[in-house]
Design a protein around this nucleic acid. Structure first.
Ligand SMILES: [Mn+2]
Ligand SMILES: [Mn+2]
Ligand SMILES: [Mn+2]
Ligand SMILES: [Mn+2]
Lengths: 220, 220
DNA sequence: AAAAATTTTTAGATTTACCTAAAAATAAAA
DNA sequence: TTTTATTTTTAGGTAAATCTAAAAATTTTT
């Protein structure tokens, strides 16, 4: 059984490992809002418990058990987010902090029944995939909006930035999950993207376009 | 802001104060499954924070703030229990431990929306009253089944024992919340009670009868 | 009112999760 | 290949929540 803190470390290492192969002490410290020295302490403990492989100065990787544990926490986090949005009418920018606490409730029965109650959702309110109880993710094929060419179209299916500011901004623009869009133009000057959304033309900054995921239903 | 541990102490003191005016160190220790020395440490801390009044060797009482905090935790505990039973189909004997964890999730918004989602329930799955967001309890008038006389009738509206063994036993007997009963006979020999339940005669021990609460809709 | 039993508190440690400051290892630059 | 910069680890400490053992206060019994 892991502590609340250990679980958060495992989850952080898991997410960092999605981006970089070799997870560094400083990166963990930054993400966890703590000091590198504290991270070293915890890594040693996790290594003793067989949850991570660790070579001094060479960073960490999750063991099979560590990875499964991390995925289970991710599963809980995302299921709770669905609950908060679908059942309690929270907005997608309001759910993260509460889910951050709820993900640590220890009851297998609870999470399986919650999954069923929610209708076995495949994605959370931000489009992130929800692993099943065996830790398997449904395969997904996303493209970043920024990578689309003029004329390409598709459906908004996720975001890669979860800050409340960004999510509220998208909401205001009408860029929510499930919306269909088409690229009208890309501005040379600032890289901003002109898109067709529900019959209207809107312009979004390059920065925004970078963080929107599209399931492309066809080029041009 | 209180820690998980502080909250559990406050709740324990609150419940003990429902039975005895003067809450003793040893009683808290027993309830919290810890040692009296640890209780003394924590009581001092709670006193420093203004959550309890404390005189050495004279036991503790909750301050106004301490009491409100405790009631808020009780509210959360009971609302989560309703959620688990009504929405996730847990049995009434399975919810306590999970609610024990969920009660510590810190979000006022969450609990208010949960309350609404559940239809502002007035009682939890064990018949215990749920305080409103201002900490006020609906007035209830319960009598212990054991106190009823032959011919008296009423509706089962609560239990004063939450052990899984007891609750499962009641379930098997068909003695669940909302059921109407009438006292047919009381056995002199062992104090067991003969009751009429849904047209059938059943016999329950004195020990069981002591822990069932009845809202009496009339004598004889 | 003593003596005995019980309850409660203190004293001194332990464990977990942190921290700061300094040393050591590794990586990058000159 | 030194020097410099960055990253990581060690050393030593703190605070929260526990514990055991022993002392002190209170209550009960004789
Ligand atoms: Mn968390
Ligand atoms: Mn999410
Ligand atoms: Mn609790
Ligand atoms: Mn209950």
């Amino acid at each position: 059984m892991q502590s609340y803190t250990e679980e958060n470390y495992l989850k952080t290492i898991y997410h960092l490992a999605e981006k970089t192969t070799n997870v560094q002490t400083n990166a963990i410290a930054e993400q966890m809002q703590t000091k590198p020295a504290s991270v070293t302490d915890m890594i040693k403990k996790l290594a003793d418990k067989g949850l991570v492989d660790y070579i001094k100065y060479q960073g960490v990787t999750l063991t099979e058990i560590g990875k499964n544990t991390a995925i289970d926490i991710v599963r809980k986090h995302r299921l709770w987010e669905v609950f908060l949005v679908d059942k309690l009418n929270f907005k997608w920018d309001e759910v993260h902090d509460v889910a951050e606490e709820l993900e640590h409730i220890k009851s297998i029965e609870l999470i399986e029944r919650l999954d069923e109650f929610l209708g076995f959702p495949k994605a959370d309110p931000h489009g992130d995939p929800i692993p099943d109880k065996n830790g398997r993710f449904a395969k997904t094929q996303f493209i970043k909006l920024i990578e689309l060419k003029i004329g390409d179209h598709g459906t908004i299916t996720g975001v890669t930035q979860h800050s409340s500011a960004f999510l509220k901004h998208l909401e205001k623009l009408g860029l929510t999950l499930g919306k269909k869009i088409q690229i009208s133009d890309v501005t040379d000057f600032d890289g901003s993207v002109e898109i067709l959304l529900s019959g209207k033309q809107i312009n979004i900054s390059r920065e925004v376009a970078k963080h929107i995921l599209i399931s492309s239903n066809g080029k041009n």
